[in-house]
Design a protein around this nucleic acid. Structure first.
Length: 128
RNA sequence: CCAGUCGGCCGGACAGUCGCGUCCCCGCCCGUCAGGGCAGGGGUCGAGGAAAGUCCGGGCUCCACCUGGCACGGUGGUGGGUAACACCCACCCGGAGCGAUCCGCGGGACAGUGCCACAGAGAGCAGACCGCCUCCCUCACCUGCGGGUGCGGGCGGUAAGGGUGAAAGGGUGGUGUAAGAGACCACCGCGGUCCCGGUGACGGGACCGGCACGGUAAACCCCACCGGGAGCAAGGUCGGACAGGGGACGUCAGAGGGUGCCAGCCCGAGUCCCCGGGUGGACCGCUGGAGGUCGUCGGCAACGGCGAUCCGAGAUGGAUGACUGUCGAGAACAGAACCCGGCUUACAGGUCGGCUGGUCCC
RNA sequence: CGCUCCGUAGCUCAGCCCGGUAGAGCAGCUCCCCCAUAAGGAGUGGGUCGCAGGUUCGAAUCCUGCCGGAGCGU
């Protein structure tokens, strides 16, 4: 894998977050939820966004979880289908998890989300 | 050494690999130039003592620029420090402690108003329930014929004692008295005048008064001093998109505004409301400052003057993570968003120093 | 960034301005009525007044600081 800039894979707009969490498939583990969707007009490179709400902890805890998630997503970028968009949401208690366990939860949830997406067949996000 | 008290400092360190943000250099790409872009390489720097809560004070920016009175809010011993403060330092007073030291919203209750429940006789120009005492009346008893004692009743005196209460109109001791009482005396307290010390809060002394004037102002209030409003989403530059319609008031005899009201002064040709539509980009502000360190001088200190030296974040969906190794070892609270000075609150562990009390040794 | 409001019984709220007794409705429990249930009637328990300091003789109430929860403006 050629070195790439992380900023190409970032998800920023609130509209994109809403589109993925509403139309995409969802797969959960005990401390993490993965939403995945194939949106129209999406670029070839997969994009990922994070949601860590205030219920998870204070600012330090939320930042630490976001950094860990970003780090392990960067290591597993090739696990995301081309052209897909993902949102990973952390649940309360995630800061207690060792990094390796968090990695298992995210990759496991991502795997089942990909299978769900393939079973659905047609690209989701089609207009109603 | 033990116990205590006050203050300062640290807030895991080092090394390696991968990864992120700012800035600089190189490289590559676009462009006629100006310049712009990048996924490559190298270097530099990269959260806190509270970055927090947003409780005060300022800087900065804008508001047609800001005066006076009222209202509202804040501050509240004195003197300093400071850009300023509700902060800091020193001192005074009161309280706690053997002490070092700590705590105090610490002006005014003879400008006025209000409140002081329950209990209690009486609670604000107070008051006689029990008690104590003089005198008078009835009755009984004793008698040395002057009177005395006792039960009951009455007119009074009395704030020493009991009892109520947070608080009962100076305290303690004596003189005095029928019993009592600042009625009188001593000391203490209180008030006044004068003298001395101090910049001052205040302290000390002498004399006089002779007790009159309870508490509450974090109750209304009075006094002194302070406060124009909004906030970096301030404000500005560039670029882009769209669609306009209706109503109210007004254009110098002037709507409206100067963020409470009135007056003064000033600005002034547009202002406000409703329906509908569009944008929601980039850049500046943006970090070099009441800055840190060291020396020296002034000051009890807070702090200030001078000189030298250093540059220590600047994001914009918001940068610090992953793995490994070593070390008196897995440790706390916690993440900048315009900046600074404070306050308050949270906090594992460690470390240094001053002082106090006790014990032991020389 | 700038503000506002609210924490009182299991639940929904009074009481706070102007300090002395904490109260209402529903719910709960006991009894009556009824063959039985609901309804109705009578009675009854239950509150660190969010937390901690302070002012006062005395604080749910006044002051200060925290904690938690809603909401508004830009």
């Amino acid at each position: 894998m050629t070195p790439t800039s992380w900023s190409r894979h970032r998800l920023r707009s609130g509209d994109d977050f809403r589109a993925v969490t509403r139309r995409g498939v969802r797969s959960a583990r005990s401390h993490v939820v993965v939403h995945l969707a194939l949106l129209p007009q999406a670029p070839e490179a997969p994009r990922v966004g994070f949601v860590v709400s205030k219920k998870v902890g204070n600012s330090v805890v939320r930042h630490r979880i976001t950094r860990r998630l970003r780090e392990l997503v960067r290591a597993h970028l090739d696990a995301f289908p081309a052209g897909s968009t993902a949102v990973i949401r952390a649940l309360p208690g995630a800061e207690q998890l060792p990094f390796a366990d968090l990695e298992d939860e995210v990759t496991g949830a991502l795997g089942s989300a990909v299978r769900k997406l393939e079973r659905r067949g047609t690209p989701s996000g089609a207009p109603r």
